[in-house]
């Protein structure tokens, strides 16, 4: 159990760092959705299934799509 938690945390922090570091905005947004997905697994492990369901539907799905539409409208690369 602890091993799984440590692996999840490493993926979470690496995803957050890649969100900030990446020059490609699409890669940054996908890393951000990975962070939301791991947060959803965290909520499930913390015995909060309501919050996990909300984060999975809204944080991983809709939020990513809204960012993607904005990137499609503006520019893909960060200058």
């Amino acid at each position: 159990m602890d091993i799984l938690l440590i692996i999840l945390t490493v993926i979470l922090i690496a995803g957050a760092l890649n969100t900030v570091r990446s020059k490609d905005l699409v890669a940054a947004v996908i890393s951000g959705s990975v962070v939301s997905l791991i947060a959803s697994i965290y909520f499930y492990l913390l015995q909060a299934p309501d919050v996990a369901l909300t984060e999975a539907a809204i944080g991983v799905g809709l939020s990513t799509i809204i960012f993607m539409i904005t990137i499609r409208r503006t520019g893909r690369m960060e200058e």
Partner: peptide, 8 residues
């Protein structure tokens, strides 16, 4: 679940 999740 509930209204917010189902709506999403």
């Amino acid at each position: 679940g509930g209204g917010f999740q189902g709506g999403a």
